[in-house]
Simulated scan of single mutants.
Amino acid sequence: MWMIFEITIELKTTQKDSLIFYMADPSENYYAALQLMKGFVFFNFKIGNSPVFMDSDFVIDDGYWHTIEISRNRKTGTLQVDGTKRKRAKSDNGRKNLNIQSPIYIGGLPLNRQSPNVYGDGFDGCIRKFHLNDKVIDLTGKANNSYGVVTCYTNTEPGHYFQGIGHALLANQQQIGSDFELLIEFRTAQKDGLLFAATDLDGVGVTVVISNHDILLKLYTGRRMAEIPFRAHNNFTVCDYQWHLVQVVELNGLWQLSVDGIMANNLRGTVRLPEDERYRYYAGGNPLSNPDGIRFKGCIRRLEVNGGSVPVESSIEIVGVVPLECPVV
């Protein structure tokens, strides 16, 4: 039973629409939700016949830290953002408590649960403080279940941080024609890891990996495996935590690989991938055709396919990746 609760959250995000906090009874008729809607903080709850709504007077999707305080005391709810004037609203006739046993959701709902009361997707940003009724909630170790929750960093630069435990599914059902170009700019201190893959379930397609400090371009047609290596040499390595640019170009089946503008030895002959095949684009790991492969740990700040930028933050699936922020060490 929840008759009274007070919650304080400190967070930062650039996301406009997302769920921050949610609890409801099994029927979803009575609930409390804290969300972002077009960048505005939106607090609503329902314990009577009609829901109660409160929202902030300004947006907070600016990437800076903000403090949100919400409370509900029987039929009255309050919302305060960054110490501004506290807003109040009162429920109509009805019950005074939320009949909720568990669970309480922070940052989103599981894939197998949908709610008509939730606007937007899971929260994409950082939460550094969560107090429930004056108790500090440890979001890193006390959750019964968690999905897609990773570490936040304070000293950062633009890019996407791959923690070496997951991947980003960038696109689905893509074709690779007779002309293909990939640009990927990254930095890492790890000697192994998958940078990019465009493959089907059987591994047919293009894969770019770091292997013992070397960059390898791997091509598999389903019948033939080909490889173009770029070897570490003369104290040159891509694993020095400096930014490096890898470029892959295909023209009518002829493939080229370059690193920081230096060409690797070209592959003899042509390698033509099946043009009618549908490929998935992955960065950081390939759970589709190589689930046991070494994940990339480091930062990617530029990713382009065929001249178009690929926004990692808008990926179909993100696991173990901190979008839009790379830690500076």
Rank of each mutant, 00 (worst) to 15 (best):
I4P: 00
I4W: 13
T8L: 04
T8Q: 03
T8K: 07
I9E: 00
L11V: 03
Q15N: 04
Y22F: 15
M23R: 03
P26W: 00
E28Q: 14
M37S: 12
M37D: 05
F40W: 09
F42W: 10
I47D: 11
S50I: 03
S56L: 13
D57E: 14
K75N: 12
T78I: 08
L79F: 11
Q80L: 08
V81C: 01
D82C: 04
T84D: 01
R88E: 14
N93P: 02
K96A: 07
N99Y: 08
Q101F: 00
R113L: 10
P116E: 05
K129R: 15
K142D: 09
A143V: 04
A143K: 03
Y147Q: 12
V149N: 05
C152G: 10
N155G: 01
G159V: 00
G164A: 08
L170E: 11
Q173C: 09
I176K: 11
L182T: 11
I184H: 02
E185H: 14
A189R: 14
A198F: 06
D202A: 07
V206G: 00
V208W: 01
V209P: 02
R231W: 06
R231D: 02
D240L: 05
Y241T: 02
Q242Y: 06
W243H: 04
W255G: 12
A264V: 04
L267M: 08
L273P: 07
P274R: 12
D276S: 14
E277I: 04
Y279V: 13
R280H: 03
Y282S: 09
N286V: 04
P291A: 06
G298F: 04
P311G: 12
L324C: 05
C326M: 10
